[in-house]
Computed example of a mutant assay.
Amino acid sequence: MEETSGGGRRGRDETEEERADRRFGELLQELRVAQTGVQILFGFLLTVAFQPRFTELTSTDRIIYTVTVLLGAATTGVLVGPVSFHRLLTGKRLKPQTVAWASRLTMLGLVLLLCTMASALLLILRVVVDDAHAAWLVVGMVVWFVVCWFVLPVWTRMKERPKG
């Protein structure tokens, strides 16, 4: 446990294994939220190709659709990865390593989710508004996601970092 500048203690009094157990439990809760959204989005994407108007899409829109489906599949795979890590390594006394890899996969999953959302928005907005406006709307949403998902947490971490 670390001491604060005032001589008090901060943090948790836990072993490496207890910390890994806690961190993995927290990570699983986070993954439940992300996986649900990804699965709904991916399910929706899979149905699009079977809609009557799909044949009316331009070749550019079909390429965007294909990229979006592949990104959705990749996102699903990465966000399910921590479950596989846990299942295959349970009982092998590798919980800290499992948590580290699961955390990395989750961060990659968030980046892929950002790309999937941007691609899906581009596809939908190209149908709803003209191409130029669609691109700007997508850029605006990507900036919003980056601020909410990455900038604010990193800024908070840096701002709240203990001094000296």
Rank of each mutant, 00 (worst) to 15 (best):
E3P: 00
S5C: 03
G6E: 11
R10K: 10
G11T: 07
R12W: 07
R12I: 07
R12Q: 08
E14W: 10
E17A: 10
R22G: 00
R23W: 03
F24A: 02
L27N: 00
V33Q: 08
Q35E: 12
G37S: 07
L41C: 05
F42E: 02
G43Y: 05
L46E: 07
V48L: 11
A49H: 03
F54P: 03
F54N: 07
E56L: 14
E56V: 08
L57E: 02
T66H: 04
V67L: 14
V67C: 03
L71N: 01
A73R: 02
A74N: 07
A74M: 10
T76W: 04
V78M: 10
L79V: 09
P82F: 06
V83A: 14
H86M: 15
R87K: 06
T90I: 07
G91Q: 06
L94E: 08
V99A: 12
A100W: 04
W101T: 12
A102M: 08
A102V: 12
S103V: 06
C115K: 02
L121E: 09
R126S: 15
R126L: 14
V128T: 01
V128P: 00
V129R: 09
V129A: 11
D130V: 00
A132K: 03
H133T: 11
A135R: 06
A135C: 08
L137F: 08
V139H: 05
M141K: 06
M141D: 12
V143I: 11
W144L: 15
V146C: 02
V147G: 00
V147S: 01
V151P: 00
L152R: 02
V154I: 12
V154A: 14
K159S: 08
R161S: 15
R161A: 15
G164N: 05
G164T: 06
G164D: 06
G164F: 05
